[in-house]
């Protein structure tokens, strides 16, 4: 009798080894964070100066992504505007619906920017951070190697000044020469291109070079040499 139990016990013990492991799945709370990658860096600089003078508002986009599985209902996102922000919510900007739609992993949230007189001589900042909501806790707080701030924070700078593109010295100076605001404004007018901070493919860049050179020739034909704010003649190499 005793032996029979031992045999049965051994058989069960042996079979237990044959059980299938549960799949490793995210078991924790639903969380949310700002995506951080090349096409959606952790900060964004927007200038109304590169747009038409009649443009009084525009939209910047921030992207949020969840941790865990999507839900079958819309879920609330909580984004706080930090006290360090110099732009005023409701006057300089508004943040669009903070909702993660049902069955979604990711959502682009609109930030409506308003052109205001004070932006002519200053750069305003909107410092955003992910806060806990009824549906999400803050997600990753790590900082990707190329990002100065972590995944729970995002910074938008907005101005009406013409800003020197961050990549001018690295990627544009070789083709377009020394920076001046006069030159940059002329480049924007003659090409219609407003975003000079994103990557420009080589063939497109060649076309931009050809276009500004020809436009400068036409300008000089009519008005003579163009002089920039530093008293230097505007030229392209």
């Amino acid at each position: 009798m005793q032996l029979r139990y031992i045999a049965i016990l051994s058989a069960f013990a042996g079979l237990a080894a044959c059980s299938q492991d549960d799949r490793l799945m995210y078991q924790q709370d639903s969380r949310i964070y700002f995506t951080k990658n090349v096409v959606n860096a952790d900060s964004l600089v927007y200038s109304f100066a590169v747009t038409d003078a009649s443009k009084m508002k525009d939209t910047a986009w921030i992207t949020l992504r969840i941790m865990g599985l999507p839900a079958d209902k819309d879920r609330a996102i909580n984004i706080a505007v930090s006290d360090t922000s110099t732009a005023k919510q409701g006057y300089h900007f508004e943040i669009g619906p903070l909702v993660m739609p049902a069955d979604s992993f990711q959502k682009r949230i609109p930030v409506i920017l308003y052109r205001k007189p004070g932006m002519k001589d200053s750069i305003l900042t909107i410092d955003l951070s992910v806060q806990e909501s009824a549906d999400f806790k803050p997600g990753y707080s790590d900082r990707p190697a190329s990002s100065p701030i972590d995944r729970l924070h995002y910074k938008i700078s907005v101005t009406d000044q013409l800003l020197k593109p961050a990549r001018w010295d690295v990627s544009l100076a070789g083709s377009f020469g020394a920076y001046s605001e006069t030159k940059f404004r002329f480049m924007i007018q003659s090409t219609g291109k407003t975003d000079w901070n994103s990557t420009i493919y080589p063939a497109d860049q060649q076309f931009l070079i050809q276009t500004v050179k020809y436009a400068l020739y036409k300008y000089e034909e009519q008005y003579g040499p163009m002089t920039d704010e530093n008293g230097e003649r505007v030229e392209f190499p």
Binding site: Y201, P202, A203, D204, F207, Q210, T211, Y214
Partner: peptide, 9 residues
Amino acid sequence: FPGSKKWGG
């Protein structure tokens, strides 16, 4: 390199 290659100006 990426991007369309067309004739320029």
